[in-house]
Amino acid sequence: MAISRLPSDAFEPVHRGKVKEETFFRPSLTYWQDVRRRLKKNKMAMIGLFTIIIIVLVSIIGPVLAPYSYSEMDWSATNKPPSAKHWFGTDNLGRDLFVRVLYGARISLIVGIFASLINLTIGVIYGGISGFVGGWLDNLMMRIVDILYGIPSLIYVILLMVILEPGLQNILITLGVAYWLGMARIVRGQILTLKEQDYVLAARVIGVSWWRILLKHLIPNSMGPIIVTVTLSIPSAIFTEAFLSFIGLGVRAPMASWGVLASDGLSTLQVYPFQLIIPAIAICITMLAFNFLGDGLRDALDPRMRK
């Protein structure tokens, strides 16, 4: 019999005090550590992130190290194909395309990031007020958003650009003004759902002021979708800027933006296709990188994915 193999003290009782409440089931990860872990596991998002970092670094350092400036013309070397001397070749004025693409990256990133920050600010304030106050004000504010949403944003971006002088500053203003609608809707939706959460009710029962509820409870918990929306709005801002510059409403020569480069390259497409293809590829890679990162962030931040 199995019992006979047991040591003689086997059935002695184990003396212990009260069972303590100290067992932690789950590894101790804060929300953001958890997000980072999931993001790291997502290959596409990591590729996107690294691409973005490389683009940022190169666009900052590259022009400093390059032997040419973006506006320096060399009449002896116009329309040169890519070579060891000019990595991406030169344009019809003999300007080095590599340096110009790097400068374009600066402008694109500036536009993307600042336009997103502007629409973040407007969107969070507008959507926050709308969702938080609720009632008729919410109704009114959301109907205004609906009406603006009905107009294709490109139309009033173009209209605004025609009224304002083309230039970097005005592009930022235009994009900021045009793209906050989505952000406002998302923030409002978040606030509306969070407002009914038990922990917000608990805070109200305690007597926490509205201001503190907004700052401590509502905003921190809606950070996830806000970050995703910001990340995903960067590529669309970059693209809109490129488009505006392409049709001549954006950045003006000799400033180099990817849209300007593509526009310049278009006229010589049949003879020197690289002049169009290179900026086009730059736009594609940047947009893809931001979109990958944004999608990865969305998966990483989604609380439903939490185990």
Binding site: L6, D9, A10, F11, E12, P13, V14, R16, K18, V19, E21, T23, F25, R26
Partner: peptide
């Protein structure tokens, strides 16, 4: 008292022993 164990960690002995008032050495 206590809570059910986390099944991710390997369990030694009887799974109920941390909550059991009759726990013995063998458990």
């Amino acid at each position: 008292a206590g809570h059910p164990p986390d099944l991710i960690s390997s369990l030694k002995g009887c799974a109920f022993n941390p909550r059991c008032e009759y726990a013995m050495k063998i458990c």
